[in-house]
């Protein structure tokens, strides 16, 4: 119907124009409608959960028995859960530090150096993100438990526990730092560094005064992402944590064991914390670019 543009008279052009406008409008509305429904889909379960976290009857909406903050009080006075939260924060911090150091260095290699097998190196670097958690978790568990633990003297270090979990998460967090920081370095004008060097700055000074300030937000965002990934990971931790509990595994047993009130409260609390962290990370840089798609071509 829209193919006969060539031979139309003025009148039909006008008609078509209106027709086009109406359709355009409806299409746009439809698009907005779908987008709105999607956001509802994304948010509804979380909203219900947040609501239930302050509801007297914590397991379902009906019958509604009034609001309370007692679930929060009970949650934050649960020593086991708080210990797990503390463990999670510790593991995430150490693991994200390792991932950040390694990731920043590797980003320089990607952005600044030419070397054989560079694309293999890059693929290798993002692999921890691609390998499903079950596979990575089991592979590391078997590796630590059956292979490394058998080594005399140092073997004991690899009995599943704090260290093995940190190692696991340092690997898992690495790609996030790599992608974010290398993306930043690709857009970075190398001539700035050369100029600094020409003006007599040492490599170290150049790095400190020129390079670092420019990549700092990306490094910060990379660290945050690696941190969040470690903090929210369940399945890898499930296999390599030993008997130490981190927040996700403690929550998993809570769900299995039916502790809905505390679960709602701690979950709602996490949504809040992540919201703040994410807002910070988004202000540190263009998150969407880091999260999807590669470096700027």
């Amino acid at each position: 119907m829209a193919t006969n543009t060539e031979n139309t008279t003025d009148v039909t052009t006008v008609e078509r124009f209106f027709d086009h406008r109406t359709r355009e409008r409806w299409l746009r509305r439809g698009l907005y409608g779908i987008a709105g429904l999607l956001l509802v889909f994304l948010w509804i379960p979380l909203a219900v959960m947040v609501f239930l976290s302050v509801a007297q009857n914590a397991s379902t909406l009906f019958p509604f028995e009034g609001f309370t903050l007692q679930h929060y009080a009970a949650t934050f006075s649960d020593p086991g859960l708080m210990m797990a939260l503390f463990n999670s924060a510790q593991v995430a911090t150490v693991a994200a530090c390792i991932a950040t150091v390694l990731g920043v260095l590797a980003s320089f290699a990607l952005a600044r150096r030419e070397f054989p097998l560079k694309s293999a190196f890059r693929t290798f670097g993002i692999l921890p993100m691609i390998v499903p958690g079950v596979v990575l978790g089991i592979a590391l568990l078997i590796y630590f438990r059956t292979l490394l633990s058998a080594i005399p003297v140092v073997g004991d270090l690899f009995v599943p526990g704090f260290l093995t979990l940190v190692l696991t998460h340092s690997v898992y967090g690495f790609p996030f730092v790599l992608l974010i920081v290398s993306a930043r370095l690709y857009t970075f004008d190398e001539q700035l560094e050369e100029a600094a060097r020409d003006l007599g700055a040492s490599p170290l000074e150049t790095f400190r005064d020129v390079t670092l300030p420019i990549i700092a937000p990306a490094v910060g965002a990379g660290f945050l992402f690696a941190w969040i990934r470690s903090f929210e990971d369940f399945i890898r931790a499930f296999f390599t944590k030993g008997t130490m509990d981190v927040l996700t595994t403690a929550m998993f047993s809570m769900i299995k064991y039916g502790a809905a009130p505390k679960m709602n409260a701690i979950s709602a609390f996490i949504v809040l914390v992540i919201a703040i962290l994410l807002a910070v990370a988004m202000n540190l840089g263009n998150v969407t670019q880091y999260v999807a798609g590669g470096p700027d071509e």
Binding site: D233, F234, V271, L277
Partner: peptide, 10 residues
């Protein structure tokens, strides 16, 4: 992104 970064478990 917010639901996305909220714990998978949650």
């Amino acid at each position: 992104l917010l639901p996305f970064f909220t714990m998978y478990l949650v």
